[in-house]
């Protein structure tokens, strides 16, 4: 089964455990500045929103890359950076409509979410299940279930 990250911002408390898990998994250090997922805190609205790559099927970043450094992991569907081919031209960072590919000046390469090879550290670290790793064909399942649960068919049956 292909799986996909599913993000429910209303469950996010802004703890940044995901950012630390991501940086630890990828860089071996606790460092949100090197995280592939970012949580945006909108103070005046009291909202926290985690944001990362959605792994487009027809990926803008991959299509834009002149060196074919962005490759699809067949097992996970993730668009992964091949550091041996990446020349740090940053065209992918421009092509991505969502800003989720970013340049790392320390290495001269770009970084983006690679789904941790099929076991995303952010989802494991999230204490509120704001980030989950679910059936890629059923990312709406949880929301559907939530609405289904609120459907008041019991009272109409009693009428």
């Amino acid at each position: 089964m292909m799986r996909s990250l599913s993000i429910a911002p209303e469950k996010c408390t802004g703890c940044l455990q995901c950012e630390m898990a991501c940086s630890y998994e990828n860089e071996g250090v606790f460092n949100p500045a090197k995280s592939r997922i970012k949580v945006f805190v909108f103070e005046h609205e009291g909202r926290n929103v985690p944001y990362t790559c959605t792994q487009c099927a027809d990926a803008w970043c991959k299509n834009a890359c002149p060196t074919e450094a962005i490759q699809i992991n067949a097992a996970t569907g993730a668009k992964e950076i091949n550091n041996g081919l990446c020349v740090g031209c940053k065209v992918c960072t421009i092509a991505c409509p969502f800003g989720t590919v970013n340049y790392n000046h320390a290495t001269g390469k770009v970084i983006k979410c690679d789904l941790c090879g099929g076991d995303p550290a952010c989802a494991k670290a999230c204490p509120t299940q704001a980030i989950t790793y679910v059936d890629a064909d059923w990312t709406g399942y949880g929301k559907m279930r939530g609405w289904a649960e609120r459907t008041d068919n019991q009272s109409s049956a009693q009428v």
Binding site: T13, C15, L16, Q17
Partner: peptide, 9 residues
């Protein structure tokens, strides 16, 4: 809403 400080579960 409730809100976490850094790293708080």
């Amino acid at each position: 809403a409730n809100k976490a400080c850094f790293g708080c579960t």
